[in-house]
Amino acid sequence: MTGTLKYETPHSLAELWPLLVSDRELTGFLAGGTDLIVKYKRKQLNLTRFIDLKNIESLKGIWLDENKNLHIGSLTTLTELHTHPLIQKHAPLLAAAARKMASVQIRNRATIGGNLCNAAPSADLAPPLLVLDAVVKLESDQGARELSIKSLFTGPGQTALKIGEVMTEVMVPVSEPSDKVTYLKQGLRQAMDIAMAGVAVKLNMSGNLCQEAAIALGAVAPTPIRVKAAEEWLRGQRINEQSIAKAAELAKIAANPISDVRTTADYRSELVSALVTKAIQECMTQV
């Protein structure tokens, strides 16, 4: 890393806001830094300043409110996500997805806020949070607002965050024990890999009848997406080979993948169908 670079370490949001008055386009927000620092070193980012958020205590912590919403500070690391008892109990899907990411060393650093604000189409936490109907809290010196995660991603690497806004919290409605949830990810390696496709599924069943379905896809469209058509199809259906196949087909149609260095668009399409099928099947094995 080279050049004259400033490094700010605000200890509170109050200390952060004045720093955002100028040079906001040339500022990199350091959470885990696992992506930002690599991009900076590779000169993919032109930055004059790092603002290290890690000393802002209000961005940390995991707690449950009286409305059964899990509040996850944006600085929560992936390791915390997959080991924290509250996450394991109330958002097991998120814990499982975090565990499938990168390596121990990266998981010890990378944060939920970083993963979401990076807005990679393949972000592993996005599909689970999409099916869990998570809401993110964005704050600026003008105040706070809440945004459905569905509205967060606007394009590859693009979010709905306005300049001067910081993601402070991710709120996740607690999963009921009866919820059937699965996140499946396929990379070329079994670890240290970026998904060629990722699929999250959440089903509410009444016997063999699907009451509610949520299906989200990662790495197969410019942003992580929910698949409304497949969800609507499954609602009220009996879950069997035919209904699963139809849902998988609808998901495949909804996907809009590209070919890149990791695999082809065609294979990604096939993978969507295969993983949606597997994910629903896996949900159905859960008691």
């Binding site: 079994q190 670890a191 260095v261």
Partner: peptide
């Protein structure tokens, strides 16, 4: 080389 890094040039890991 468009995958000149260890994320995209995949040496197998201990898990693989």
């Amino acid at each position: 080389v468009i995958n000149a890094n260890f994320l995209d040039y995949r040496l197998l890991t201990a898990v693989d």
